[in-house]
Design a binder for these strands. Structure first.
Length: 298
DNA sequence: CGTCCAGGTCTAC
DNA sequence: GGTAGACCTGGACGC
């Protein structure tokens, strides 16, 4: 493979970035077209390219503190810059977690994270993370993997090596209802997925501007809740994993019992919120890190 | 084979 | 504002 370029693993505030914790930051980050190898700690992904095809990348921490981006072929400077910018965004290299680490250092259960955890790997678009999150609702994780894999395989543009990018809103908008029902087997979610895709495709809905700093967290949440198939759980999940907005706790059938197990006692949602209230705008992130501490060996 | 439920949401009260 | 019931799918479990 050919080297596209390198990215320094350091946040906007000068804070460290833990490569493994970033790859293993949350479940949706492991869904296609991402492929995370948690032995070699490499990250494969496939991005759509301007010519209607797509391109696969391999990103890994070849040297400590530096991520190297590799591709199948050579790129001119402009293309390389475009691919590196996409990786920067997905790795959230321009986010600043230093203020969170300041608060986290004071909490014995979270202080471990200040060595570089908490950077949620995101998709190239908010649209992709919204669709994937809807595919996590009211089904087992294997169902989510099956649905997302089918969307990517059947609707995403191919790279020539058998890999596919995540489908565009247009591709999802144009797919037959029969595809959602018979091939992707998305059940009642099919109508939600296609409705979101159609709204974005037709320009009636802009999901990408939900990351706009001029929009408040409350405003972003309110807009997410208007989307079909997006309720309190999905809104919180999208805020945390796609928007870099960390003020909402993801409360669902995985986080609730996991918190109970790790903390050693049953807890109401209100009690959980109380536990992390002191983290203010970062309470959702603190809660998530509390739950996922053992995802990577320390 | 039937029931339950999994990283919930929507609608109708 | 809060709460039942319905809802696709498929894997786990009991009978």
């Amino acid at each position: 493979m050919r080297e596209v370029g390198e990215l320094a693993l350091q946040g906007r505030g000068g804070e460290p970035i833990d490569w493994r914790r970033t790859l293993a930051s949350h479940g949706v980050a492991t869904l296609p077209p991402n492929r995370i190898d948690s032995e070699a700690w490499t990250w494969h992904t496939t991005l759509p390219s301007d010519d209607g095809g797509s391109e696969s990348l391999l990103i890994s921490e070849l040297r400590p503190g530096v991520a190297t981006v590799l591709a199948e072929r050579d790129h001119n400077s402009a293309d390389a810059q475009r691919l590196l910018a996409a990786c920067r965004q997905m790795l959230r290299l321009d986010d600043d977690l230093s203020r969170f680490y300041l608060v986290a250092a004071a909490d014995p259960d979270i202080a471990w994270a200040t060595t570089g955890a908490g950077r949620m790997l995101r998709s190239p678009t908010v649209f992709e993370d919204v669709i994937k999150t809807i595919c996590t609702t009211n089904c087992s994780w294997s169902g989510t993997e099956r649905m997302v894999a089918a969307l990517v395989r059947h609707l995403g543009s191919p790279d020539g090596c058998g890999q596919h990018a995540f489908p565009s809103p247009g591709a999802m908008a144009k797919a037959d209802p029969e595809f959602y029902r018979e091939v992707a087997r998305t059940g009642y979610r099919g109508a939600y997925l296609q409705a979101v895709a159609r709204q974005v495709f037709e320009g009636r809905l802009d999901l990408e501007n939900l990351t706009d700093p001029g929009l408040t967290d409350t405003g972003a949440e309110a807009r997410l809740l208007t989307l079909p198939g997006v309720g309190p759980y999905a809104a919180a999940h999208i805020m945390l994993t796609a928007l870099g907005r960390y003020g909402l706790l993801i409360l669902d059938s995985w986080t609730r019992p996991t918190y109970a197990r790790l903390s050693g006692r049953r807890a109401s949602d209100q009690a959980i919120r109380r536990r992390f209230r002191s983290f203010g705008n970062y309470q959702g992130l603190a809660f998530w890190l509390y739950l996922t501490r053992n995802w990577v060996a320390e």
